[in-house]
């Protein structure tokens, strides 16, 4: 029987910031403790095995009130790829108008995740 090990995480699922303990036996998770809601338990499992993040950044927009439009990944992406994705998105340019939810880049770096606008911008 392999040794049990406890890892500590702080849940980022909501502002409560539950302090999680994830116990594993070397291969599998045995228990996730310290959560207040199911999201916390899920986060603990994921953070222990395959940490993922949603990335929010901006892209350039032409013909709008501001020079940039906010965007995000349509789903979570592997944590290790966050910087790479932000860099890949940096040079994207779109033309106003843009609608909330519209994809400005599809399947970013082969993750299967799109980059979508998080607001409407009108043409001015």
């Amino acid at each position: 029987m392999s040794e049990h090990h406890v890892s500590h995480y702080l849940c980022i699922g909501c502002p409560l910031g539950c302090r999680l303990e994830v116990e594993d036996d070397g291969t599998d998770i045995v228990e996730v403790r310290g959560w207040d809601c199911k999201r916390g338990e899920r986060y603990g499992r994921e953070e222990h095995t395959d940490p993922r993040r949603v990335v929010a950044t901006t892209v350039k927009v032409r013909g709008a009130l501001w020079a940039r439009i906010p965007v995000k990944t349509s789903g979570s992406v592997p944590k290790a790829m966050v910087r790479e994705i932000a860099k890949a998105v940096r040079n994207v340019e779109v033309e106003a108008p843009v609608r909330l939810g519209a994809a400005v880049l599809t399947d970013v770096l082969g993750t299967g995740v799109d980059i979508v606008a998080t607001r409407d911008v009108e043409r001015v």
Binding site: A56, T57, P70, K72, L100, R119
Partner: peptide, 25 residues
């Protein structure tokens, strides 16, 4: 909110996590 492009808004109010611009809109 328009410049707070990150996540973390609306969990209490809308029951899901939104970015600032989504919450504002």
């Amino acid at each position: 909110l328009w410049q707070c492009i990150h996540h973390g808004f609306g969990l209490h109010h809308f029951g899901e996590e939104l970015t600032g611009p989504e919450y504002a809109q």
